[in-house]
């Protein structure tokens, strides 16, 4: 297992290098000069040349790239072209916000999604099952910004129960977490339902019931545990999505997270900030996938990683 983890971590380095190279090339290929964008309507040729020199953008592209890589290896991702803030500082701060939002949304999605999925499977064809299935379709289909605005108008503006925007207290995360978590909750409930339906028709569940085990033990210990593999696969990839930030939720609720940081840096051609956020997202996805793969072995003892896997 240790060898497997080490190998996957080494692969991560290669993935990150590839991601940084692709990002750098793309940002230099698409039209849009960051210096012109900074100077906007006052971009005289002299000013452009002066600022470009100060920012080191007049050096050869290869020099710029290798300079970036060597500094990145020392966790120095440079400074934003626009705010002049160190990229690592901005990422660390934004990560804290995104982590709080993502973990709240994830908790909502997992707890309610799995509970609803299990209950729905156990009452297959019943009213509750129909309600969960219908709700899941709506939850997956509803655009996140629409859900966000409805929540803001209902619970923020009309009832005044929660803050409308910003992150001035823990309560500020309630509405954004619900808005963000609903979609994931819906997909988790659907997968849980399907997986549970498959498992509860197995012989060993019938045997467990025949042995006289309490229904709670049969469902939670035998059925749900065996139904968890597809749920974990989905939950793992969704954790990556959540930690990568949600631009729309962050925009509507004025939450300064990673997603908005990335979109802003794309629009402003802020290459150091963009490379930083892309690398961050790559790390999040690689690590969340690795965590999912490792967790398989703990949940299902039949799965073992051998040399060469």
């Amino acid at each position: 297992m240790a060898t497997y983890i080490l190998k996957r971590l080494l692969q991560t380095v290669i993935v990150l290098w590839g991601v940084s190279l692709v990002t750098f090339v793309l940002m230099n290929v698409v039209p849009g000069d960051p210096v012109l964008l900074m100077l906007e309507k006052r971009a005289t040729p002299e000013a452009v040349e002066r600022i470009r020199h100060e920012m080191g953008l007049d050096r050869p592209k290869t020099t710029q790239y290798f300079d970036f890589v060597s500094k990145a290896a020392r966790l120095d991702l440079g400074r934003s072209y626009f705010t002049k803030e160190p990229v690592m500082t901005a990422l660390t701060r934004r990560f804290g916000v995104t982590l709080r939002l993502a973990s709240s949304a994830y908790a909502i999605a997992l707890l309610l999604g799995i509970s609803a999925g299990v209950a729905s499977a156990l009452q297959r064809g019943g009213a509750f099952d129909s309600l969960v299935r219908g709700g899941a379709v709506i939850g997956i289909s509803a655009p996140v910004f629409w859900v966000a605005i409805i929540l803001q108008m209902s619970f923020g503006l009309r009832l005044g129960w929660f803050p409308i925007s910003g992150i001035r207290s823990d309560w500020s995360f309630v509405l954004p977490a619900i808005a963000l978590g609903i979609r994931y909750m819906a997909s988790i409930s659907r997968v849980t339902r399907t997986s549970m339906l498959e498992v509860i028709s197995q012989d060993y569940i019938r045997t467990a019931r025949a042995k006289g085990l309490a229904e709670r033990v049969v469902i939670l210990k035998h059925a749900l545990k065996n139904a968890l593999i597809p749920i974990i696969t989905l939950a793992g990839s969704e954790l990556g999505n959540l930690l990568a930030g949600s631009m729309l939720t962050e925009w509507v609720f004025a939450i300064p997270g990673i997603g908005k940081l990335m979109v802003d840096s794309i629009l402003m051609r802020d290459l150091p900030m963009l490379q930083g956020t892309v690398l961050y997202i790559a790390v999040v996805f690689v690590l969340s996938n690795l965590t999912v793969d490792i967790s398989y072995a703990f949940i299902d003892p039949r799965i073992r990683y051998l040399k060469g896997d």
């Binding site: 605005i149 803001q152 923020g156 503006l157 803050p163 409308i164 925007s165 925009w251």
Partner: peptide, 18 residues
Amino acid sequence: FIFIEDPNTRRMEYERGN
């Protein structure tokens, strides 16, 4: 100076008296 970029959210905060 409270940063709220979305104009609709800004309006809701204004209407709410925030």
